[in-house]
Design a protein around this nucleic acid. Sequence first.
DNA 1: ACGGCTCTATGAGTAGATTG
DNA 2: CAATCTACTCATAGAGCCGT
Length: 288
Amino acid sequence: MNFGPKIREIRIKKGLSQKETYSGIISKSYAIEFEKGKHSISANFLIHVLERLNMDMDEFLFIYMDYRLSPYSSYIYRLSSYSNTHNVDSLHQLYRELSEKNTEIYRVRAAETRCRIRVIEQFKMTGIWDTTCILKEDQAFIQEYLVRIETWTLQEIQLFGNTIEFLDFHAHFPLFKNLSKSLSLYMNYDRGREIFCVMLINLISQAIKHQFLDYAEVLIQQLKLLSSDYKEFFHAAIARYFDSILLIKRGDHEQGYAEAEKLLLFFRELNQQSLADELAVHIKKVSL
DNA sequence: ACGGCTCTATGAGTAGATTG
DNA sequence: CAATCTACTCATAGAGCCGT
């Protein structure tokens, strides 16, 4: 990848000279050749240059890719938007694209996508959200992949978070124990916190479903710790919702239901219909 | 004078050939 | 087969030129 020409474009738009942009970082001659695309500079130097342009690496890469998402971000975006709108045709298209690539990580993503397709297709036919209809081979493939991970990256934590409902419930504990070592490392990184929050939400949901209420309570505390900032109020609201489900499950029906309904209404007012429907499953289960 | 540029030199690292 | 040598690439700095 040669970033020079794009850096030059940004620098000129900002009215900065080469001297202002590169002095003390790389030599002027090298800066010129870098901008012409004749050679690249080390990531370390690139970060310093981007600092002079008031930009971080994330934003620069986004601009460099012509304001398009990275292949991974695009995959996550498509998977979640197609799943949320139950757009099975697009999910099939995504599955075909993933199947064409033959590396392990693409096979894991294809398995994840096929799980979604099967559950959504069955839901459309029966009206029941039942994850047992996924293929055993997909479940085994994802689970075996996750079990092998020693040091978790955010992408892998996100994969775990997004596939929790498809995995063996008893596989959750060791996997979560293993990845939670990374939690403190990502505490101050907003994207990391976001991914951990979503993972915790799905984990709590499963813990409640399987009646592991004390375990759910511990996880809810962790979710609250991670979503204390105002920007994460949405996750904090979901934590409150889970609190109310625990109240109901532990016998305080009146206050629990009132609180849970209030929060579901709040999510619906924010146009989060599918999330509210998903969360409402916990209330229905309790009332049956 | 300043910004942008070319040419050349240097040191570190490495792939491949040669030698003991 | 391991150690050494050689040729090459990469990332860099500096001297100096050109146009405004």
